[in-house]
Design a protein around this nucleic acid. Sequence first.
DNA 1: CTCGGTGCAAAGGGTTTGCATACAT
DNA 2: ATGTATGCAAACCCTTTGCACCGAG
Lengths: 134, 134
Amino acid sequence: MAASDAGTRRATRQLALALASVRAAGTDHPTADQVCRRVRRTLPTVSLGTVYRNLQRLVSDGRIGVAQVGSRVTRYDPTPTPHDHFVCRSCGRIEDLPAGPSAASIRALRRAGHEVTEHATVVYGRCRACRDGS
Amino acid sequence: MAASDAGTRRATRQLALALASVRAAGTDHPTADQVCRRVRRTLPTVSLGTVYRNLQRLVSDGRIGVAQVGSRVTRYDPTPTPHDHFVCRSCGRIEDLPAGPSAASIRALRRAGHEVTEHATVVYGRCRACRDGS
DNA sequence: CTCGGTGCAAAGGGTTTGCATACAT
DNA sequence: ATGTATGCAAACCCTTTGCACCGAG
């Protein structure tokens, strides 16, 4: 069962709300702190430590992902399957990209004897809203 | 002049050694701590804070770069021009890649009205040495 | 009843910063 | 002489962890 094995885990309110919060955030790719704030709207006593623990668990259970966007703070991603991102340099908005395999480089690496397992691409720029704004 | 303007800056031994250390590291993409250790081989009194300040400055002057490899610690890159990386999941080695433009996604973003300035791709796997080893 | 989850608060690791001093110009 | 860069140490930020209590099973 591996990643999807809930094993001997208990279904707590805190865990459910953390998952719901990451999903509810939509395209926001929230930080642990943002998830915590949102969970507190329903369960005001939740602690940040618990939120971190639950997010970690959701990631290792493959229920959510972490977005590799070269940010210092961890951004959680409602979509657990690998895909790329667009990051707006102005507002920080992170949008999903429909996965772009840079086939040529990967072929070259394999020819060199390396084993390629995954790859993450981050595209940076200014989103339409920010361009329109200024 | 912008990024390459050394302005009213002083040429200190600490700055020169930081730059030399990042360059000497070759394919290592060293952390600030590693740079500090190396600088100390020549200048034992250098402080980590100074190394951080000098690395920051070298980056903003466009003399070195930072590798966006989804690691929590900052990895400095002797090559300041944008390019992609290969990261070995076993030994952590970071190798340069000759830039892989995921042309399709970028075209789609532009069509959506976003302005694309750069993109960073990280390819993960196990390098040849690690495969041979085990 | 059990033992995994929680809340709290402290510890940890990486990076930044305030301040007095040293030194490049 | 002038004021930037340094060294030191404390502060910061994000994240993890130890511990006693709570509550899902």
